[in-house]
């Protein structure tokens, strides 16, 4: 279950940062799961509760942002929003492009007390 492994990764990043800041508790965790990343946000949400139990992040609200896929079209050389790996460039219809964003998995920020 790789979402559990990823959730443990999130909790590790969060708790390390929070502890370094002397936080007593994490109230909110904001993460980015790119729309084209191989990760299911619902499963992350589900696993985060289990992974954070007994840590500084227990009970924290998990906020998930979904940056859209961004690609540079190989034909028209413009950076466009791409809704899926099988989608062509929405501007020129060319199917070949290079992904430049939207596959990230990041902890963005925390709210701690």
């Amino acid at each position: 279950m790789h979402e559990l492994a990823l959730s443990q990764g999130i909790v590790e990043v969060v708790c390390t940062r929070a502890a370094a800041d002397g936080a007593r508790r994490v109230r909110r965790v904001c993460i980015a799961i790119g729309a084209l990343s191989p990760v299911e946000p619902n499963a992350i949400e589900f696993c985060f509760d289990a992974a954070s139990r007994g840590t500084l992040a227990e009970g924290a609200v998990l906020e998930i942002r979904r940056p859209p896929g961004r690609a540079r079209c190989r034909s028209c050389d413009r950076v466009v929003t791409i809704a899926g790996y099988d989608r062509p460039c929405p501007l020129c219809g060319e199917g070949r492009w290079v992904l430049v964003g939207g596959d990230e998995l990041q902890v963005l920020e925390l709210e701690v007390e």
Partner: peptide, 16 residues
């Protein structure tokens, strides 16, 4: 005076 925001921007797969 109790809560604060910490910017992290760290890759979740950083360890891997």
């Amino acid at each position: 005076g109790t809560t604060r925001l910490l910017r992290v921007e760290q890759d979740i797969l950083a360890k891997n």
